[in-house]
Nucleic acid binder design. Structure first.
Lengths: 210, 210
DNA sequence: GCTTATGGATACTGATACTATCCATCACAG
DNA sequence: CTGTGATGGATAGTATCAGTATCCATAAGC
């Protein structure tokens, strides 16, 4: 397959494919002569994954690169791969809340984590984001949602268990790693859009001209 | 309050505040002389909201503007305000999946919506995103997660009901509108980070050096 | 009066994700 | 076997976004 065909197969413009090659997102094709390379099915798959992460999940190119590198390294522990996917999803969002709000939020989150017995790296970016978000909810005068943290956690545990199960069914380590990444990242998009649809439906019921 | 004090109160640099004023995110202060204006508590609150949306929820400035405009219009129906917040959260993510994958995904989603009796605008951006995401999961060889759509929907319905309840408790329409926006947008960040923590915890259990 | 801050306007910056152009091959239809 | 179009690789250009920086004439506050 030449680059033009790869482009047609995936609907990605040739210059964009060249860009991904340059950036190291996509491995180079096999050179058959100084200016002729051939690409295979693996390239098609990889390119589709890249596009899904970038377009659908809005993961920045630099993070996609990191994720793919970790996916291609056979030595990196699975847990660390998950960590990378997570970091790609949590673009250090910081918010300087008031100290009191932060302290209260930290306490609430710590409590949640101990109660549920979660094992969480204190350095996990998601932890900081969660604390900041709860602090922000308080600062913005919306304590009601933060108060139901536990119910959110219940619901979240429900589909997380499901995801782990779905993913663990993979026979080989490579497949497992790939589906962990895809599941982590596209799962978020899935949940988010489902939530918006559910909200819209309920809000239509409740506040639309009747 | 002058701009410097506003800056200190919110920890937002003066040039950034000026930028938000220019862009119409923040209403101008009351002019006390040709080059002197005074800002009040409302500006502090508004600025905090802007920062939370931009930093925490990564909503683009242009969308924040739209959301705030809709928040300030007393005439816009609540349901339409929610629609705007939703559009801010779904940056037209398109993905050209194969036709078969799309058709199958559309059928699956349509089925889900009718089964649950959701009332969904066929034009809702979240609908397109959901379909694209499911199509992508299939195209990428991960049908397992898509197969559990229904379980996801169960969990999602759980906290959506909660959110609507929390939000409806607001006495005035203005407060309600604001908490709808905050809840919709920061709720997403909340869920997302909880999910990542839960995943990390389970993955640590399962795949960490043992 | 002198220093600092301010409102308003305009210009500049750095990051991101592509696009465009060039050029020396290379493939291949006629 | 020659002309047309595609290719690999390199370099340069573009659009958008979210601020920063600079100016300047005025105003505040000591």
């Amino acid at each position: 397959m030449r680059i033009g065909e790869l482009s047609k197969a995936t609907d990605v413009p040739v210059p964009t494919i060249k860009y991904y090659l340059r950036e190291g997102l996509l491995p180079a094709g096999e050179l058959t002569s100084p200016n002729q390379a051939s690409y295979g099915e693996a390239h098609v798959r990889r390119l589709r994954l890249i596009r899904a992460l970038i377009e659908l999940a809005q993961v920045p190119v630099a993070q996609v690169k990191e994720i793919l590198e970790s996916l291609d390294s056979d030595t990196e522990p699975l847990h660390e791969q998950i960590g990378r996917a997570h970091r790609a999803l949590t673009p250090t969002r910081r918010l300087n809340a008031t100290d009191e709000a932060r302290t209260a939020a930290t306490a609430q989150v710590t409590d949640l984590i101990t109660t549920r017995g979660w094992k969480v790296d204190p350095e996990a970016p998601a932890l900081a984001t969660l604390i900041d978000t709860i602090a922000a909810l308080h600062t913005l005068g919306q304590p009601a949602l933060a108060a139901h943290l536990d119910t959110y956690a219940d619901a979240v545990e429900r589909f997380t268990a499901l995801e782990i199960e779905a993913v663990t069914a993979n026979p080989t380590r490579d497949q497992l790693a790939e589906s962990v990444v895809i599941g982590t990242i596209l799962g978020e998009t899935l949940i988010s859009s489902l939530r918006l649809l559910a909200q819209e439906s309920i809000s239509a019921d409740r506040w639309t001209s009747g």
